[in-house]
Amino acid sequence: MTASRSTALITGASSGIGAVYADRLAARGYDLLLVARREERLHELAARLQQTYGVEVKTLRADLTQESDIQTVEATLRDTPAISLLVNNAGTAQMGSFLASSAQTHQDIITLNITALTRLTLAALTRFNAQDRGAIINIASVLALHARDTSALYSGTKGYVLNFTRGLQAEFAGTGVRLQAVLPAATATEIWEISGVSVDHLPAGSVMKTEDLVDAALAGFDAGEAITIPPLHDEALWQRYEEARLAVFSAVGTGIPAPRYVR
């Protein structure tokens, strides 16, 4: 993936995965539009990247749980022809009992992880489709594939991101528009501080460095992968998972209840 003065818009860019994407894409020659809540951090990152790579870096403070800020970023995506890559990285988690958090806390997570991502994708795709050019990277999670007793809401939102991206990949197949879903496992970011789970409590050696995660994800993008799982070493496991998933889907088109449900 190379850039000829194209711009990448990255959400959640002030730290963690988003900040590393900013660094790596700047190194590839992209100009950047960095979006996050923490304006001071955005400015510090922008100054460093401009000095290091000589690219243009703009910042946009936005809280993507807020309707007005979602609208601002939507308009930017629609009205900035130079933007050819959207990295939907902004997201949050609250691990623990579903009953322990308020309805508003749950709604904020849904708004950030699902609503904002969906609307920014729509804004970008509207123009990408007209130009027959552009790419979107959606950051999901391996918890899109599995839910634990502390991850019901987070797993649900990331399952949405995965299936939403799959559907769009099918819709835009054969066009100049590309979409990739990235499924990190445990990664060393600040999300652990927010989620209520200490990264120190995870098994030794199970946490991937943020730089390794992004480098692997971009290698997957360059290779044309639709879905990239950076810490999955045995690719055959994923192939068997996909075969089983598709076999189940194909097998339900009978129109007849299975014998175990007939009395």
Rank of each mutant, 00 (worst) to 15 (best):
I110E: 03
Q131P: 08
A100I: 08
L125K: 06
G134N: 05
S101L: 14
L112H: 08
A100T: 13
F128M: 04
S102Y: 01
N129Q: 05
A123Q: 09
Q104E: 15
Q107E: 15
A100S: 13
L125Q: 04
I109M: 08
Q107F: 13
F128T: 01
R133V: 14
Q104A: 14
S102V: 11
I109H: 06
Q94T: 14
L125A: 11
Q107S: 14
S101V: 15
G96D: 05
R127N: 00
I109D: 04
G96R: 05
I114N: 10
T118L: 12
I110R: 08
Q107C: 13
Q131I: 13
Q107Y: 14
A124L: 09
I110M: 06
D132W: 06
L99P: 01
G91S: 08
A116H: 01
G91D: 05
A116D: 01
T92C: 12
N129D: 01
A135F: 07
T121D: 08
N113Q: 06
T126G: 04
A103I: 12
I114W: 03
R119D: 01
D132H: 08
A90V: 00
A123K: 04
L120I: 07
D132E: 00
R127C: 10
Q107T: 13
A124C: 05
Q131G: 09
T92G: 12
T92R: 07
L112K: 07
A116F: 10
N113W: 06
Q131V: 14
A116P: 02
R133S: 15
R119M: 00
A124K: 09
T105H: 13
M95W: 11
G96C: 07
S101E: 15
D132N: 09
D108A: 14
L117W: 02
G134S: 11
N129C: 06
Q131S: 13
A123S: 12
D132Q: 01
A123G: 02
T121R: 10
H106Q: 14
S102E: 08
T92H: 10
S102P: 01
R119G: 00
L117P: 09
F98A: 02
A135S: 15
G91C: 05
F128Y: 00
I114M: 12
G134C: 04
T121V: 07
D132P: 04
T92Y: 13
S102T: 15
S102L: 07
R127V: 00
S101Y: 15
N129A: 04
D108I: 13
G96I: 06
L125F: 04
S101K: 15
F128H: 05
A124Y: 02
T126W: 04
L112Q: 00
A124M: 07
T111P: 09
R133D: 15
R133N: 14
N129P: 05
L120S: 06
A135E: 13
F128K: 02
L125M: 10
L112E: 03
A90N: 02
F98I: 11
R127E: 03
T115H: 09
I110N: 01
A116E: 04
R119A: 07
N113T: 10
T118D: 10
L125H: 11
L112M: 07
L117C: 04
F98P: 06
A93T: 10
F98W: 07
L125S: 02
